[in-house]
Amino acid sequence: MIAWLRSPLDTLPDTRRALPAGSDAPGLLAAGGELTPQRLAEAYAKGVFPWYSEGQPVLWWSPDPRMVLLTDEFRLKRSLRKTIAKFIRTPGCEVRIDHDFRRVIQACAHTPREGQDGTWIVPAMVEAYLRWHRLGAVHSVETWIDGELAGGLYGVSLGRMFFGESMFSHRTDASKIALAALVCFCREHGIGMIDCQQRTGHLASLGGRELPRPEFERRLSHALGAGEVTPWTYHVSLWRHLGLGPAAAQDPGP
């Protein structure tokens, strides 16, 4: 039986109480409550995230295992390397952070996805993350081409941890460029792990892998104690972390 959050004073239960593999909803931990910044901060600090559809109560999840991308294991395929190299060289192409967060989260909510009917990024979710963004905890990494938002992603930053939420593309590989830029930013600031929540073949092809919940939570606890990242800005020199960009020849990075 999952816990119901009936009051703002109710706390999320221990993640070991989440429904197990083989149940109707593996990883489901609790239901109810509101998407306030305070509740979201409590949830993410415990490795818990909201995921539900229109007409449902807020559902809180802690899957086991947990899909992550360790930033030093990011796999940059030759084709994507060439795409990014061309992107860097082309005038009018740039990566921006938090330039238009509202457009990014709305694009993530409304961009059609193969095999999906509807979206889990419901209007209440959009407004909640917009509020949390204004408080400095949620960020977007954006791919811009000739003054147009071509793709991007958004997620939550706590300590030296980034929780990836969703991404979108309006142009080929635009979201992959944003993810590669996020990896560079994370390496620059000592963020060793990006939470990807659940396994997909796409993430696995980029180096993502699953961790047992206890290992994920151990790494999360360490990252939360490592201090906040600031400032959230992107500079072309950060591409050196993937051996790309104008600074790569002088400073190859780690």
Results as ranks from 00 to 15, higher is better:
residue 79 S to C: 00
residue 152 G to H: 09
residue 132 W to I: 03
residue 193 M to R: 02
residue 240 R to Q: 15
residue 193 M to E: 11
residue 131 R to W: 10
residue 42 E to N: 02
residue 185 F to V: 06
residue 4 W to Y: 07
residue 10 D to R: 08
residue 114 E to R: 12
residue 95 V to F: 12
residue 244 L to Q: 12
residue 206 L to Y: 04
residue 249 A to Y: 00
residue 113 R to Y: 14
residue 63 P to F: 04
residue 253 G to A: 05
residue 230 T to F: 03
residue 79 S to L: 00
residue 103 R to Q: 15
residue 181 A to S: 15
residue 153 L to T: 06
residue 233 T to P: 00
residue 220 L to K: 11
residue 170 H to G: 00
residue 97 I to C: 04
residue 252 P to H: 01
residue 113 R to V: 12
residue 175 S to H: 13
residue 112 P to V: 07
residue 77 K to G: 15
residue 26 P to C: 10
residue 190 G to D: 04
residue 94 E to C: 00
residue 75 R to N: 09
residue 25 A to R: 12
residue 183 V to N: 08
residue 112 P to Q: 07
residue 20 P to T: 01
residue 81 R to C: 07
residue 241 H to A: 05
residue 213 R to I: 01
residue 46 K to A: 02
residue 126 V to N: 10
residue 181 A to M: 13
residue 89 R to C: 02
residue 18 A to S: 14
residue 136 G to W: 05
residue 242 L to N: 14
residue 93 C to N: 14
residue 62 S to Q: 08
residue 73 E to M: 10
residue 117 D to M: 07
residue 221 S to I: 03
residue 219 R to V: 00
residue 245 G to P: 02
residue 151 G to V: 06
residue 162 F to R: 06
residue 14 D to Y: 02
residue 186 C to Q: 12
residue 250 Q to L: 13
residue 191 I to A: 00
residue 239 W to L: 06
residue 122 V to P: 11
residue 188 E to M: 04
residue 138 V to C: 09
residue 137 A to I: 03
residue 178 A to F: 08
residue 197 Q to A: 03
residue 194 I to V: 05
residue 117 D to E: 13
residue 114 E to T: 04
